[in-house]
Structures are given as C-alpha cells and as structure tokens.
Design a protein around this nucleic acid. Structure first.
Length: 264
DNA sequence: AATCCATACAACCGCGTGTAG
DNA sequence: TCTACACGCGGTTGTATGGAT
C-alpha cells in the first residue's frame, strides 16, 4: 500500500498559477493567515488547488519582499562558498531550528527562497562550480586522468568519490570543526562591511552582510547575517572549512584588516 | 519559416520529521 | 507511548522561451 495522497488529485488544478488565483490566495492570507493548516486552506479560500501547491506558491512567489530576476555576482559567490562550506550536511542553529543547506544559503540572501537558490544552483552554478573545482582538484585526486582527454562525467565521478570519502572520514572521526588562524583582539567589531558584529575571538568574512565567528573558548562556529528585516541573526554551524573559504576568494582576518582598517 | 535544442524557472512528488491528540 | 497528520525539504519533472541550424 502506498502513501495516502495529500489531496484529491482528480479535483485539484495543476500547473501554472493564474493572476486571479494569485490574487485570491494573497487576499485570503492577508485576511486570515494560514490558520496553521495549509491542507484545508485552498477549500476555505475558494481555490481548486492542493494545499502544498498553495504553500509553495506563497513561499516562493507571493510573499512580500521576494526578489525575482537574475542573481548578482555577489549572490553567486555566496552560494558557491556556502555550498562548499556546508555541502550536504544539515546546519544547526541556536537550540531549536534545524535548517537545510538551501534554507541556510537562502537565509544569507535577502529576498531569495530556498527553491530559487536550489534552481539557480542546479541550472547555472553547479556547472561553473564543477568546472572550477574539477580543474584544481583533478590533478591531485585523479592523477590518472587529464582534463583534456577524459570525459567530463568520468572526471566528475572521480572527484565526487574523493569528496565523499573525505566526508565519511571526517564524520567517522567525529571531527566537526576546522580552526582558523590567529584571533583578532577581543571586543573587535567588523564595520564598513555591511554589518557590525561584536567579535570575541576569530572571524572570517563571508560577504558584505555575513560573517563567520568562533566564540572565545568555544569550539563552535556561528554565522552572523542581517535578515530580511535588517535584524542581525546568528546560526550555530556544524563546522567550517576555512581552506575552502579562502580558496573561493574570501579573505582571512589578516587580509580583511587591510581592506577594513576599522577592525579592532 | 520551421524545427530542434538548451536553458531557466515554476511546480510537483515522495519521503523524513515533528507534533498534537 | 503510539499513531495519524501536516509541514518542509531535496530531487525531479514540466513548460516557456530564445538561440542555433
């Protein structure tokens, strides 16, 4: 016996949403909210749609402040770097939440949704990223191949196998943190970089609006960023690949102090 | 002009997980 | 403690669009 369907597929509309449906959903949510139940919402709102479909439409398209259109270079860079950093792992924030990798990455990009980021990655960035990484990684992990004569898929498989085995090793040994170089003075602030973050120990700058911070005498990393409301949020990270950050063009604190002399 | 192909974006599906009863 | 249900996620598919042939 298979899983029970979430709605009566025969009686729900599928495919692209019409402007009228969008308006109906928006108006209903403005007046009543979700009522804590997306499954019954379409019936109440007078929509012939699956509840899941309504939820997705709202989250990915109709919500206020959602950005549509092309991603900027900086956004691309943040996505690539965070993807390198967190890979396929889940990231745990303060005490309660468990975020997926796409949610976390989207959280660093105001106005972008996880679905948006995921689609952008799958259609554009993945290839760019693979080519860039393959060219540098293949020489060390797949010396039997040359990028000019070996089919791309074979090279990618080899690199993937290498990365996968490295990940298993890290998880198996329960090593969850990779440390960064010497700390900044206690009480330092990052300023002139989009946000101001009190530092108690070490920092690696991720973007204009995000910083990674490891607290003094702690073993855990936090990601600080400005959320959509402009408030500063912190997420507790599993680990940080500092070398990957550096190899993707982000700077260590020694360098960042050159471009941001207000450190400390 | 017609057809094919690649790309981008929107939407769907199935499954894992949390939670209320 | 158990179970059913709803939510949220990752993977995948569908469709529109534009460029190449």
């Amino acid at each position: 016996m298979g899983r029970a369907p979430c709605c009566d597929k025969a009686n729900v509309k599928r495919g692209p949403w019409s402007p009228e449906e969008d308006e109906t959903l928006k108006n209903y949510l403005k007046k009543h909210g979700t009522g804590g139940n997306w499954i019954t919402l379409p019936q109440k709102a007078g929509l012939k749609r699956c509840g899941k479909s309504c939820r997705l439409r709202w989250l990915n398209y109709l919500r206020p402040h959602i950005k549509h259109g092309g991603f900027t270079e900086e956004e691309d860079q943040v996505i690539c770097t965070l993807y390198s950093t967190i890979g396929s792992r889940q990231v745990h924030s303060f005490f309660v939440y468990i975020l997926s990798k796409w949610s976390l990455i989207a959280a660093q990009l105001p106005g972008r949704t996880d679905n948006d980021v995921k689609n952008h990655w799958n259609t554009k960035l993945k290839k760019k990223f693979l080519v860039a990484n393959t060219n540098s990684t293949v020489k060390t992990v797949c010396p039997q191949f040359t990028t000019s004569t070996t089919p791309q898929s074979q090279v990618e498989d080899c690199v993937f196998d290498h990365e996968h085995s490295a990940e298993s090793h890290v998880l198996g040994s329960e090593q969850t943190h990779i440390l960064v170089p010497s700390p900044l003075p206690l009480g330092s602030h990052v300023s002139g970089l989009g946000s101001s973050v009190p530092l108690s120990s070490e920092v690696s700058v991720l973007s204009n609006s995000t910083s990674l911070v490891k607290q003094e005498n702690e073993t855990q990393w936090f990601s600080y960023h400005d959320n959509i409301e402009g408030e500063n949020e912190a997420l507790l990270l599993d680990f940080v690949y500092e070398d990957l950050l550096l190899s993707n063009g982000f700077v260590s604190q020694e360098k960042s102090s050159e471009i941001a002399p207000s450190f400390g």
